[in-house]
Computed example of a mutant assay.
Amino acid sequence: MNAPTIETERFVLRPMKMEDWPAYAELMQSDRAQYMGGPMTREAAWGMFCHDVALWTLLGHGALMIEDRISGECLGQVGINHGPLFPEHEIGWFVYPQAEGKGVAFEAAKALRDWGFREKGLKTLVSYLDRDNLRSRKLAERLGAELDAEAPRNDPEDLVFRHRFQ
Rank of each mutant, 00 (worst) to 15 (best):
A3C: 12
A3V: 13
I6T: 03
T8I: 06
E9T: 14
E9A: 15
V12H: 08
L13M: 02
K17C: 12
E26I: 13
L27K: 05
M28K: 04
Q29M: 05
A33Q: 02
P39G: 06
M40S: 11
T41P: 13
T41Y: 00
M48G: 12
C50W: 01
V53Y: 01
A54V: 10
A54Y: 11
T57H: 00
T57W: 02
M65I: 13
E67P: 14
D68I: 14
I70V: 15
G72Y: 00
G72H: 09
G72L: 06
C74I: 11
V78P: 01
N81C: 05
G83S: 11
F86L: 10
F86S: 07
E90D: 11
P97F: 03
E100L: 06
G101N: 01
G101C: 02
F106V: 13
E107S: 06
L112N: 05
W115E: 11
G121I: 12
K123I: 14
L125D: 06
D130C: 10
D130Q: 09
D132S: 13
A140M: 03
A140Q: 00
L143R: 13
A145C: 11
E146Y: 02
L147T: 13
L147A: 01
D148I: 10
P152K: 07
D155P: 01
L159D: 15
